[in-house]
């Protein structure tokens, strides 16, 4: 029983990170119908920037003070927001009306540019990094609550609630939802769709940066290819919940985290990477629009 609870706790903390990344995929897909392949690499940049910022300021990349961590976090999120803005502006906007496959290829190009540009700039070897101070795990009658895990979960949930608030209860959120349904009609309402799309990219990238920092605290190391697998899995989470659907991405992320942790715990950790793709295939066979997604028939 304790073992199961332990897996659930670990799974939720991992799942919360997936959910944070998945939100970026799902929001961008919502407004542009584009899988932003580079999203996982923005996640990597978030962790990287955090590493460099804290190495520069505190002289060491581990065990910083609370305020140091907060400052590094905000800085890294800001940088990634700018990167997200530039990616959209330079690589995706000129292709807004091109066939989707072209945007997809460009997105893959951007992703590889960040990964291999990163390998050349940052070096290919992993660097140890953890933005959160190391503390003893809390012990609740055998159930070990990792300090990092708790922070990861709480911060993720808080960010998701803020996002939920933005998307569903603000003017700009309403505009985002309008653009995601039909950008042309939205522009007839006086909505500057270019601005909304840029805003969406920035928002998604900021969340990805936060996820990158949290991920690097949970698995304390950073390297240029670290975004690939979490990025792919978060995409799976977004599809699982119903791509384009904000609550769906959160649900999908948490479910995926749980599933991975349970497979790793009760079966074999070497197959945990396969879980995400197995779930993807199952959901695509059973309900291609995702758990919370709606299916629209193509208009003929």
């Amino acid at each position: 029983m304790i073992e199961l609870l332990q897996h659930i706790v670990d799974g939720l903390s991992l799942g919360a990170i997936y959910a944070l990344i998945a939100l970026g995929y799902t929001m961008v897909y919502g407004v542009l119908k584009l899988i932003n392949f580079a999203h996982g690499d923005v996640f990597m940049l978030g962790a990287m920037m955090g590493y460099y910022a804290s190495a520069k300021w505190s002289g060491e990349a581990q065990n910083p003070s609370f305020w140091g961590a907060a400052l590094v976090g905000i800085l890294s999120m800001a940088i990634c927001g700018v990167v997200g803005f530039i990616i959209e502006r330079v690589a995706y906007r000129p292709l807004r009306n091109a066939p989707r496959i072209n945007s997809l290829i460009t997105a893959i190009g951007v992703s590889f540019l960040l990964e291999y540009g990163g390998q050349n700039l940052f070096g290919p070897t992993p660097n140890p990094f953890g933005i959160l101070p190391r503390r003893e795990a809390l012990n609740l009658g055998g159930l070990s609550l990792g300090y990092v895990d708790v922070i990861v979960f709480v911060v993720s949930i808080a960010l998701m609630l803020i996002l939920q608030r933005i998307v569903f209860h603000t003017r700009i959120g309403t505009a985002m939802r309008a653009v995601s349904w039909n950008a042309q009609v939205a522009s007839l309402m006086g909505i500057n769709t270019d601005f909304i799309i840029s805003f969406t990219f920035v928002l998604g990238s900021v969340l990805a940066a936060a996820a990158g920092l949290l991920y690097a605290s949970k698995y304390p190391s950073v390297h240029p290819l670290m975004g690939l697998m979490p990025g792919l899995k978060a995409f799976v989470a977004a599809v699982l919940g119903g791509i384009g659907n904000v609550p769906g991405a959160m649900l999908g992320g948490l479910l995926l985290g749980l599933a991975e942790q349970l497979v790793a715990g009760y079966w074999s950790s070497s197959w945990r990477d396969a879980v995400a793709f197995a779930m993807l295939i199952i959901i695509l066979l059973v309900k291609p629009s995702g758990i919370l997604g709606r299916s629209d028939a193509e208009k003929v």
Binding site: W181, V185, A186, S187, L188, G190, I191, N192
Partner: peptide
């Protein structure tokens, strides 16, 4: 752009069901 024209008082109600069904 369309959104600039809306600001000038020129408004277009598009053909068919141009409402946002998700709102």
């Amino acid at each position: 752009k369309p959104h600039q024209l809306v600001a000038k008082g020129l408004c277009h109600a598009p053909e068919g069901r141009g409402v946002f069904p998700n709102l």
